[in-house]
Design a protein around this nucleic acid. Sequence first.
DNA 1: TATGAATGAGGTTTCATTCAT
DNA 2: GATGAATGAAACCTCATTCAT
Lengths: 232, 232, 232, 232
Amino acid sequence: MSGPKDIPTFVKDERLVEMRREQIVRAAVRLFIEKGFHRTTTREIAQASRFSIGTLYEYISSKEDVLYLVCYDINARMREGLEPLEALEAPPDALLRLAIERLIRVVDAMDDEVLLIYQESKSLLPEALKDVLRREAEIVAFFARLLRAGRAQGVFRIAEEDIDLMAENIVVLAEMWAFRRWALRKQYSIERFIATQTRLLLGELGVPAESGRPAEGRPAAAGPSDVRSAED
Amino acid sequence: MSGPKDIPTFVKDERLVEMRREQIVRAAVRLFIEKGFHRTTTREIAQASRFSIGTLYEYISSKEDVLYLVCYDINARMREGLEPLEALEAPPDALLRLAIERLIRVVDAMDDEVLLIYQESKSLLPEALKDVLRREAEIVAFFARLLRAGRAQGVFRIAEEDIDLMAENIVVLAEMWAFRRWALRKQYSIERFIATQTRLLLGELGVPAESGRPAEGRPAAAGPSDVRSAED
Amino acid sequence: MSGPKDIPTFVKDERLVEMRREQIVRAAVRLFIEKGFHRTTTREIAQASRFSIGTLYEYISSKEDVLYLVCYDINARMREGLEPLEALEAPPDALLRLAIERLIRVVDAMDDEVLLIYQESKSLLPEALKDVLRREAEIVAFFARLLRAGRAQGVFRIAEEDIDLMAENIVVLAEMWAFRRWALRKQYSIERFIATQTRLLLGELGVPAESGRPAEGRPAAAGPSDVRSAED
Amino acid sequence: MSGPKDIPTFVKDERLVEMRREQIVRAAVRLFIEKGFHRTTTREIAQASRFSIGTLYEYISSKEDVLYLVCYDINARMREGLEPLEALEAPPDALLRLAIERLIRVVDAMDDEVLLIYQESKSLLPEALKDVLRREAEIVAFFARLLRAGRAQGVFRIAEEDIDLMAENIVVLAEMWAFRRWALRKQYSIERFIATQTRLLLGELGVPAESGRPAEGRPAAAGPSDVRSAED
DNA sequence: TATGAATGAGGTTTCATTCAT
DNA sequence: GATGAATGAAACCTCATTCAT
């Protein structure tokens, strides 16, 4: 499996398929977040998609297909959220800082969705699960590239062998904003969360903390480079 | 809800209740890991517990109760695994090092169970979920206490406000050994994982990396040392 | 598969299983005859069996199982109908005469059932179909044994190689009373049908027609032996 | 109902109707044989016919219509297979011999189709079923005519009243080559089957066996007349 | 205290047919 | 004449829970 194209449909008009599946995904994401995959019925999905159950099955061939479409879509939207970073030209440390912030903000905007992936991807059929994990891994791979680039330029102090694990760490320490929100949100603002996770991760890479958000016990110091995110 | 005691049962003999529920949990953990909560039937749970479906319902009053018992048990076993640390007397940094290693080893030994919590606790009834989260939080709280102690002694350079988040980070960076195993295990040994996560976390606390590979049962090194890891 | 014992059930009490399955078969035969296998719903079967759909599925595991039970039962009842012959002592030709008559009378009494087998056994699962055909073949084998005995005694003039085909012919020429009834019944009484098919088959075996039912163009002649069926 | 002409269609061009229906029948016979009538979907029929489901319904008005077309076609092809016999001039016994052989060869060539009729004609709508049975009966009637002619010439020794039953027997003893093939084919060649069934049937008519295939216990003797089938 | 047969609401999926284009 | 997307009743089957024994 590599994308929704591999899910069989009885409908020939590709445009229509894409459109209807978008409807399905929009409806299903909401329902799955609300009640979980197993407690959501196909009838509910059809109803929320604004067509009959029969029509639903013209576009997918099992409920698991809907889950795959949903997971695929969530992953795609997350990557879209990170896309602006690809084009960015900046020193590695600044870039990484930006990327971490961006990732956390994307996770914040899609927290329900991230949680959904953590909780329901196990219900995917094996083929689909493999595909979803591979796509997940591509987000990690993006960070691994950043790290490698920085290491090549001598900006990051990290062993080559540790790069992949570090990249996993980055993603997990961002996504926990979603799957640990019950613990985090009552005490931390997203700004503080971003600042702290960034400092933790860049600290390990031998990059001193950036100025602006002095933390107790840690002298505020101008970072070695100074690029602001496009959003600022 | 605060513990299995709050789950109603028709049986009066407390000993018996405890015994039977132990059977139930042993059977259900295995089944939930294998097939997930929703795909496991109460009939299967009864059968694997070696008694009838009727008897099962003498000791619980809904399938969700079984999930609660299972989550409770997993949490309890994890805390048991960390218990030896409570009595340990050692400098904060050594203690933390040990605690991180221990936690990761416990996660390694109970990886299926940790994953189960991540994936299925959403199906708990609200009351039960709250209880499970509270107990989860106690593991985090243990690390927060360690951090606070170290901070009080001036060994850890961390803001009071960051302590809770840092403690969450520790737990998440350990538990990811379970919920990211599909990505991690093909590349990393548990030893390397422990070493790297430890370095990352202690680095942030201003504690330089220890030499060698900390192994369980190894006497805590006194005070921070100034040796870089062999990998650097 | 070799008998209903191989159909899984959730119910442990074997007596009960047998009883309930009898109910199921009684209900299903009627329904299948009336509407055919595919047009009969499992709910109708449950209802006609006087229990809930859930209970139905405690005793079988698919609708095809019901069909198997039905086919098995029909075959068993047919063989029961022929059983009295097994004990009978008489010259081979008299025995065969009796057996043919008996078979036709059984087919007459179970004509709907015989038709059902012809029309619906194709819907059996492969394993079950094989079993049903094997049991069908045993009826044929009974006649083959009769023929072989008669041949051994020099009463039937038939090549060994033709015996199995001849036995098939006997069964088919009897069962056609069921599956060709739309053509036969408007013109023939069962008595005439029995007489004619018997003459045809015994004629081929070199046994002259029996007296009693003279046919035009054929001199009535005393048969070589003279045993009357128990029913006469 | 008397022929496909009575099945309503939205299409006016009769040529087109005939053409399309031929496509439908070709596709449907194959599918019905493969999976049975009920397990074949109209979508599959349309697809195999190389046009859309909408178009299918321009030429028929229900799935049962397709079954009727199929049964009608099978019957027509069987009769076509027997047609050469109509023109043949030969003594009745030779003619009957030929006709039986021919019928069996047609059944052999269309065994799946014959089986289909036996198994699925029950699903025809009452009107259509009546028509199919009537057409079936015409095959039987052909043999009845042969018998009557032979009787008139004094070649066959058979009572007038038995002629129709005898004709049914002929057809059934031929068609069993299809519907009992699971039992017959593992032991008999079609040649032997033809020979044996012919002998059985002609024996009953007082016609001695033909030379060529002497059967044990039965002296080989030249038949009273000697006409070879056109195929020889 | 233990059993397990019974229940039936509700799950997913199918498919003959229609009708706007 | 041809198309194929849309429909929804209805199919088969599951399973948490109860309750008489």
